[in-house]
């Protein structure tokens, strides 16, 4: 557990150090490569990983379901549908429009999931699954409907690549995380109580309705930003909280550890994607390719410990 910050630092150091461009002092291009290519990419990866992991941890705590992840909120699919619609239906739309459109789509989908899934956590899960399937179907329909070129542009975005990350985007993500930090600090003890079950939480005097709303709000914001900034990034929100729980059983620290783990995971995925071969593999594909086996391994290794936290 103590090793986590060091692991994060090691991943960060390796990300800044390695790449096809040879770094050497006194080379102005090396400085650009380091500060304008590798650094924003690393920072955005860490920020988005932290956001997704935080969202996953909040949702797993809220629903007391270990399989909950930000995909449940419909945010990734909502953002994806909005961007794909923008690309396919109005190919001439300016590139800068994608971020606000994605954010709007993410929030709209989340609002819809919550309207439908009002009430018990199980209802939320089911409506999230249902709506995500519907949104995915709409995305496929748009891809089929659109021209080849637009479909290819959209598929590129759907792969979730960090290659064109800018410091401004990383800064925006950092701001969102900073704004969420006090809320999470406030919610951490409530999440601990919520683990004991709703009746116990109520009996202990937890304002259940308000707490639930706040958790959802934080979870939506934490997942909508990465979905809008990078595109869909699978599995981080599901796995990071589980890995973090392996590191420490203390519920009070679970959110922070999840965020750190998520940051390290996505940074690692992006590093792997850009250094495995001559082809840059988008981080979103790496998280999906590595995420599924990692998740199965976690389940098989200690089946009893798969419970909610």
């Amino acid at each position: 557990m103590k090793g986590l910050p060091f692991l994060l630092l090691a991943v960060a150091g390796l990300s800044l150090w390695s790449g096809p461009y040879p770094l050497s002092g006194g080379d102005p291009m090396a400085q650009i490569v380091l500060l304008e290519y590798r650094l924003p990419r690393l920072l955005l990866a860490m920020g988005c990983g932290a956001g997704l992991a935080l969202s996953g941890a909040l949702l797993q705590g809220l629903t007391r379901n270990p399989l909950a992840d930000p995909g449940l909120l419909g945010v990734s699919q909502g953002a994806a549908l909005a961007v794909v619609a923008l690309i396919v239906l109005t190919p001439a739309a300016p590139f800068a429009l994608r971020l606000p459109v994605a954010f709007g789509g993410a929030l709209a989908a989340a609002a819809l999931v919550q309207t439908v899934g009002r009430g018990a956590p199980l209802r939320l899960i089911l409506s999230g699954i249902g709506l995500s399937a519907l949104l995915a179907a709409l995305i496929s329909a748009l891809l089929t409907h659109g021209g080849l070129r637009e479909a290819e542009t959209a598929l590129g975005w759907l792969a979730g690549s960090l290659h064109a990350a800018t410091l401004a985007e990383a800064g925006l993500m950092a701001l969102i995380l900073l704004a969420l930090a006090p809320l999470c600090a406030l919610l951490a003890p409530a999440l601990g109580v919520l683990r004991l079950g709703e009746e116990v939480a109520l009996a202990l005097g937890l304002p259940l309705l308000r707490v639930r709303r706040l958790i959802l709000l934080a979870a939506v914001l934490a997942a909508a930003a990465p979905a809008a900034l990078v595109g869909p990034l699978g599995f981080i929100g599901l796995i990071a909280p589980h890995l973090a729980a392996r590191l420490s059983a203390a519920p009070g620290r679970h959110l922070w550890l999840s965020a750190l783990t998520g940051a390290a995971l996505l940074a690692l995925a992006d590093l792997a994607g850009r250094s495995l071969g001559a082809v840059q593999v988008p981080a979103g594909l790496i998280t999906s390719i590595l995420g599924a086996p990692l998740f199965l391994w976690l389940l098989i290794r200690r089946p009893a410990a798969g419970g909610a936290r």
């Binding site: 461009y21 590139f95 590129g156 064109a164 082809v279 840059q280």
Partner: peptide, 26 residues
């Protein structure tokens, strides 16, 4: 191959980059 790999392009030390049939974004 794939998305533009800025580092690899920089490492080739070009003095012009032709990208008028490339689909690059802003």
């Amino acid at each position: 191959r794939g998305a533009p790999d800025f580092e690899r392009i920089a490492a080739a030390r070009p003095d012009v980059i032709l990208a008028f049939w490339s689909g690059i974004t802003e």
